[in-house]
Write a protein that binds this DNA or RNA. Structure first.
Lengths: 133, 133
DNA sequence: CTGCATCCAGCTGGATACTG
DNA sequence: CAGTATCCAGCTGGATGCAG
């Protein structure tokens, strides 16, 4: 009699893989970048410091919850700095840190590949859909 | 009397933004790359053609459903080609297309930034968590 | 061997209401 | 102005069973 069922073994393997996987630096980075709002916030901040409400205006579709959440994550990761001015009303400015700025060339590289090749992808899709109608 | 409530206007704005947003090439690319299994499959195929079951073995944590789904998407996008050999049992090989290969330097760049800077990010996190205990 | 169909638990993220 | 707290609808993706 086995000490584990096949299902339990599979689950073990999956958990071990997940543990390893979540340690992968590339994965951590992709998890950040892939967040819907992260690249938009980073790009908006590229031009310079920006207030919370300005960000909300520039990134038209974002909800308050997600903007705050995204900014917190980026601040925690050291990609963005937060400066509070205790006037009345309160003023908060966000800014890219040097680490955050070092990420921007990569964002630009992604943009570059996308703009250069996305039409090939679109054509491939149309072809695929036509063949597998 | 307004023809729209404020809530309706906000929803309109959000839908318009979403529509614009989903057209953005960079977004389309990030949506692909950020899929948990996409980069793993692409990386696994970088060494050369590979059978379905080999992929399943190399990428230990993937479920059958997600592996198939990922491969379908990549095939549809023209990043991966699928070759069926109608033997018994069936044999299917997957391979990077030239378009898929053109994406690999970008994947490498992501890996490179991640490995160079993820420790800075980790330190920033520890600091943030310590301060905001 | 290589898949497809279905079910469902868990997470994501928008809406809403409230605060210093 | 710049958030925080709560609720919940919809999507994601793993598990399972079946098929050519």
């Amino acid at each position: 009699m086995a000490t584990q069922t096949a299902a339990e073994q599979r689950e073990e393997a999956r958990k071990a893989f997940d543990a390893y996987f979540s340690q992968c630096p590339s994965r951590k980075l992709l998890d950040r970048l892939s967040d819907k709002w992260v690249t938009l916030v980073l790009t908006a901040l590229q031009a310079g410091p920006c207030r919370y409400s300005d960000l909300a205006r520039r990134i038209a579709g974002v909800s308050q919850k997600m903007l705050t959440q995204t900014l917190r994550v980026l601040e925690r990761d050291g990609l963005v700095s937060r400066t509070l001015t205790p006037s009345v009303p309160v003023r908060v400015d966000y800014e890219l840190t040097p680490l955050g700025e070092s990420l921007m060339p990569l964002v630009a590289a992604i943009k570059s590949w996308a703009e250069a090749h996305i039409e090939d992808v679109e054509r491939a899709r149309e072809h695929y859909d036509a063949v597998n109608a």
